Amino acid sequence: MTDVEHPDTFYGLPVLTVSGPDRQRTGPRPAADAVAWRLESDWDGDTTFAALWRHFLDTVDTSQVRALLIGPWWASEYESIAPVVGLLAGDADRFPSLRALFLADVVGEECELSWLVMSDITPVLEAFGQLQELTVRGCGEENDGSSLALRPVRHTSLRSLRFESGGLPSGIVRAIGASELPALERLELWLGVGEYGGDTTVEDLAPLLSGAAFPALRHLGLQNSEIQDEIAAAVASAPVVAQLESLSLAMGTLGDEGAQSLLSGQPLTHLTSLDLHHHYISDVWMDRLGSLLGRDRVNSALDEAAYADPEEDGTRYVAVSE
């Protein structure tokens, strides 16, 4: 899965993976606040996530833990993340220092993005009022209550919110737009494709683009979308752009039409970074964007799934879907 990987650092801390009592590293443990703790079930063994969680609470001073990542949580067959969300919310008082949380730090070798069995993740935001950074990975293709979901919330500490998805449900986008997040500085949404539950429209993005929802917002990423040209057209006249320092329209199907919209819209010269990596823009229009902003401020990198000239069969692909 392009662009989907385990982070080496999280919240500025090196990531340390804990897999279970029988797989502990030798030597002394680091201080609880010195690393970002990544918990993963012994999914090729017998350790359940519940047992791992209890072991973690018993052996680490969780009052000092600042960052936590949840890796594979199933012991054998894929299971819903709902019980994990329940454990986190239920033991929130054990983590007064927690500032960063990553739900479903899972890569393709462990489980494809669209196979992750997700749930409503609102309880973690409600339980951790001190949280500053939340990253969530997973799709929303199921309609049986096991897909990714979010309800509108008020959260005064959250500064960074990131959803990595091959199909982000429009309900999540609307819930974000209806939330009160006065401290939010960074918002990144991988919108994905309809096949995997990505049904967001430009109209769903309107509250985010208005500039009124999040006064502190400085980075906006509307990425990995099959309607990237439409999004670019909306961004070209969106009030929120004036307050941004960086913008990402990367990983999607952005082509010449979208590039023209950006060039004919409001000024973008105040941006320190415009990320367009994985695109379908011709060299002519990319050169014009580079000339306008400065080539050092435009990320125009291509990868094996994107082609500068897609006219051979007209098919465009987002970077991350399944």
Rank of each mutant, 00 (worst) to 15 (best):
E112H: 11
E112V: 07
E112P: 00
L113F: 09
S114P: 07
S114M: 11
L116T: 02
V117L: 15
M118W: 15
S119M: 14
S119I: 15
S119L: 14
I121F: 15
T122P: 09
T122V: 13
V124P: 01
V124A: 08
L125K: 01
E126V: 07
A127H: 12
F128R: 03
F128N: 03
G129I: 06
Q130M: 08
E133M: 13
L134M: 11
L134H: 06
V136S: 02
R137P: 10
G138M: 07
G140M: 06
G140C: 05
G140W: 03
E141N: 10
E141K: 10
E142H: 15
N143D: 15
S146T: 15
S147Q: 15
L148I: 09
L148C: 08
L150P: 02
R151M: 09
R151S: 09
P152H: 09
V153C: 05
V153T: 04
H155M: 06
H155C: 01
S157Y: 02
L158H: 08
R159L: 09
S160D: 12
L161E: 04
L161M: 11
R162K: 14
R162H: 13
F163P: 05
E164Q: 13
E164P: 03
E164N: 13
E164L: 14
L168M: 12
P169H: 07
G171W: 05
R174N: 02
A175Q: 02
I176G: 01
I176P: 01
G177R: 00
S179M: 01
E180P: 00
E180R: 05
L181W: 02
P182R: 03
P182G: 01
A183C: 00
L184D: 00
L184Q: 00
L184P: 00
R186I: 05
L187P: 00
L187Q: 01
E188A: 09
E188H: 11
W190G: 09
L191H: 11
G192P: 01
G192Y: 05
G192H: 07
V193L: 12
G194R: 11
G194F: 10
E195G: 12
Y196L: 06
D199W: 11
D199Y: 11
T201Q: 03
V202E: 01
V202N: 00
E203V: 02
D204Y: 04
L205G: 00
A206P: 01
A206F: 03
L209K: 09
L209N: 03
G211C: 05
F214N: 00
A216N: 09
L217C: 04
L217H: 07
L220F: 13
G221A: 11
Q223N: 15
N224H: 14
D229S: 12
E230D: 14
I231C: 10
A232Y: 14
A233T: 13
V235P: 05
A236V: 14
A238I: 05
A238V: 03
A238Y: 04
P239H: 11
P239I: 07
P239V: 10
P239L: 08
V240P: 00
V241D: 04
L244I: 06
L244R: 07
E245S: 04
